[in-house]
Design a protein around this nucleic acid. Structure first.
Length: 329
DNA sequence: CAGCAAGAAATGTTTACTTCA
DNA sequence: CTTGAAGTAAACATTTCTTGC
């Protein structure tokens, strides 16, 4: 038994709103091909399972979209695309800024001009004093050098004096814009990062960190959803287990009430492993052969006895036709 | 003012990829 | 041409720390 749960299928919303995530849920007989890989593959595998499962899926709107295509403008495929996201194309709002490279002279984190909001960024951030959220116009030391890409970004924020970490609160506008970007793509390539940073008057490192934390929050939320779902599955299975135990007790009671069929010798009936039919032992052909083809297989042993299909056969009743084709000897 | 939650940032680890001997 | 070590970059996991309530 496997539990399947998938996340990340972007689904168009009828009213034209933003896509929703599909949380595919299902319980059924799992297939061994769902390899459990490290990290994301628990979800990916479950999604695959859910796709192959006849079980209905439950859709939850998690207000996020992780699987939207983002076509490449370079035609190339970057590593991030291999992880499921195509992050090669810069966001539309960042068009024309792709040539900017992060460096000491590029993309200053805090614009010297309050009116310089980074070009096409529609939100007016001037009232927030840039990234410092209206911190009285105090230019942070870290902002002076503009940060750098990953290889240098870690050190770049530290080597600027001992005061090191200056906690900031992103403004609502900045957060909203980052959120919108995240909905389009949960990872950024360097150019997109720089463009976004420019538009928001942030350092590229800040944008990078924000996306990292955002991904972590998404994953955490998903884990909570998974946990809740598995809890419910556990309850359902416990209930099913209780029911089956009860059914078993009823069967045992029936066993004493129907001594003829239940007292057949064990060698009389056997299950063919290939076709899953209950067949009579050739050596004891006098015993009735019971066809248990899939379409006729009762859903439970109790149904086997209660269903009006003539089983078990009463004495003198015509026997059902033999199985059409069987590998049984 | 302490406690707490949220979140920004730092740090360490893992993985994939490239380069080069 | 193949292979393994070294280097690099990016993402992730975890932790630290700041800030606001």
């Amino acid at each position: 038994m496997e539990l399947g749960l998938s996340l990340g299928e972007a689904v168009a919303v009828p009213d034209g709103g933003r896509p929703e995530l599909v949380l595919g849920l299902g319980v059924g007989v799992g297939r061994g091909e769902d390899e459990v890989r490290r990290r994301e593959d628990a979800v990916v595998g479950a999604r695959r399972w859910a796709a192959a499962s006849p079980e209905p899926s439950v859709r939850l709107s998690l207000v996020s979209s992780l699987a939207l295509h983002w076509p490449s403008d370079t035609g190339g495929v970057e590593p991030a695309a291999a992880r499921g996201f195509d992050v090669n194309r810069a966001p539309s709002v960042a068009a024309g800024m792709e040539d900017d490279e992060d460096g000491p002279g590029a993309a200053p984190a805090l614009s010297s001009s309050p009116n310089d909001s980074g070009g096409s960024f529609p939100l007016d951030l001037s009232g927030h004093g840039g990234i410092r959220g209206g911190a009285g116009g105090e230019a942070p030391a870290a902002a002076a050098h503009g940060g750098g890409e990953r290889s240098s970004s870690r050190a770049s924020d530290d080597d600027e004096g001992a005061s090191a970490r200056k906690k900031l609160r992103l403004s609502k506008e900045q957060s909203a814009f980052l959120e919108e970007s995240f909905k389009e793509h949960s990872t950024l390539n360097p150019k997109q990062k720089v463009a976004l940073a420019k538009q928001l008057n942030l350092r590229p490192r800040q944008v990078e960190v924000w996306f990292q934390n955002r991904r972590a929050r998404t994953k955490l939320k998903q884990t909570e959803v998974d946990c809740e779902y598995l809890k419910r599955c556990c309850e359902t299975l416990t209930e099913e287990n209780r029911r089956l135990h009860k059914e078993l007790a009823e069967l045992r009671a029936l066993k004493t009430a129907r001594p003829f069929y239940m007292h057949l010798p064990a060698t009389t009936l056997s299950m063919c492993p290939s076709c899953e039919r209950v067949a009579s032992n050739p050596a004891t052909t006098s015993a009735p052969a019971v066809a248990a083809s899939p379409e006729r297989r009762p859903s439970s042993f109790a149904a086997l006895f209660s269903a009006p299909r003539g089983f078990p056969l009463a004495a003198g009743q015509p026997r059902p036709p033999p199985p059409p084709e069987s590998n049984c000897l």
